[in-house]
Simulated scan of single mutants.
Amino acid sequence: MTDEQEIRTLIENWVTAVHTGDLATVLTDHAPDIVMFDVPPPYDGVRGLDAYRETWPGFFEWQRSGATFALESLEVTAGSDVAFAFALLRCGTPDENPSLRLRLTIGLRKTDDRWTVTHEHHSFPHDDVPPAVATADVRSILDHWTTDTATRDLDALMDPIAEDVVSYEVNGNYAGKPAVREVCKSGLESTTGPITFTTPDTVVKASGNLAIAWGIDHVTTAGVDTESRSTRVFTHTPQGWQLIHQHLSYPSTS
Rank of each mutant, 00 (worst) to 15 (best):
D128L: 10
V203Q: 14
L142W: 08
S207G: 05
A179P: 08
D148S: 14
M158H: 03
S140L: 07
I212T: 10
P160Q: 06
A134P: 12
H126Y: 14
H126E: 14
T147S: 12
R181E: 15
T147N: 00
E182A: 08
G176D: 02
R181Y: 01
F197A: 14
P125A: 13
N173V: 15
Y168W: 13
E120N: 14
A162D: 15
M158D: 03
T198Y: 00
P178M: 11
V138N: 11
D217L: 07
W145A: 04
A162C: 04
T196C: 09
D137W: 00
E163N: 10
T116P: 02
F124M: 11
V219G: 00
T202M: 06
P131V: 05
A136C: 06
N173M: 08
K177A: 06
P131G: 07
N171W: 08
W145Q: 12
I141P: 01
P125I: 04
V129K: 10
G187L: 10
G223W: 09
V219E: 13
L210R: 13
L142G: 03
A156M: 02
N171R: 12
T146D: 06
E169Q: 15
V133W: 00
R152M: 09
I216C: 00
T220Y: 04
K185S: 09
G223H: 10
D164C: 05
E169L: 06
R139N: 13
V117E: 02
K185H: 08
T199W: 07
V170W: 02
A211H: 11
L154W: 09
G193T: 15
L188C: 08
T135L: 00
R139I: 05
H122N: 02
G223E: 05
T202H: 09
A136S: 14
D159C: 03
D159F: 04
